[in-house]
Simulated assay, not measured.
Amino acid sequence: MATPDFVLALREKIGTDALWLSGVTAVVLREAAPTDAGAGQPAASGPEVLLVRRADTGAWTPVTGIIDPGEEPADAAAREVLEEADIVAAVERLAWVQTLPERAYANGDRAAYLDLVFRCRWVSGEPHPADGENTAAGWFALDALPPMSENMLERVRAALSPAGEARFQRGS
């Protein structure tokens, strides 16, 4: 995963100590084109979700990324989708705010994230791994998702929930 320049600059000062970073998850949805089921069966259609396969772990996820200093979070979500999958997306709403547990990377760096999950709508483009952070990108029917972590599935579910107030994760 490409590390933003501002994080590299901070790492020069603090080494591998834990960083608190703000991130986004962009759950991009589009309506699937109807398909002919044949034999008098109804045509299949429904929402599809954009997923990318991460180059570092091989995991399928919605598009995720780090918010740059001073960047509006919704703008960061749209930027990450364009950078990672070459898809133009319109951010519709904030769906979920959560804190993620601290994680250690292979190089010893540690970070914890405030994650803002946005529901986004596809505007244009065909997905492909656009920046080297992913090895694949594509649209998936909601009933045919590849294996994903429970937290990533929960991010998709949060974006699919009816419009209303954003969900906030609360500690014990």
Rank of each mutant, 00 (worst) to 15 (best):
R11W: 08
A32N: 01
E48G: 03
V52W: 00
S124L: 07
F118A: 06
A77G: 08
A130S: 09
G23Q: 10
D115G: 08
Q41S: 13
A158H: 11
A39I: 01
L153D: 02
E165R: 02
A55D: 08
V24K: 02
W60C: 06
A59P: 01
P4V: 09
P4W: 04
A89Y: 13
V156Q: 06
A76D: 03
R11I: 05
G138M: 05
T35G: 04
A55H: 09
A2P: 12
A77Y: 12
V27C: 08
R121E: 10
R93E: 08
A18P: 02
K13E: 14
R30E: 10
M1Y: 12
R167V: 11
R53C: 15
W96E: 12
G171T: 11
A130K: 03
A166F: 09
L21D: 00
V117E: 06
A106L: 14
A9L: 12
A74Q: 06
A136E: 14
P146W: 04
P47T: 00
L51R: 05
A90C: 05
M152V: 13
P101G: 15
V97F: 09
R157M: 10
Q98E: 14
G132P: 08
W139A: 10
V28P: 01
T3Q: 08
G40I: 01
V63K: 00
P162Y: 12
V117M: 03
G138K: 08
R93V: 06
G38M: 09
Q98I: 09
A159H: 04
S22E: 15
D131Q: 00
I14S: 02
G58I: 05
E31R: 13
P42V: 00
N151W: 10
E80K: 07
A136G: 09
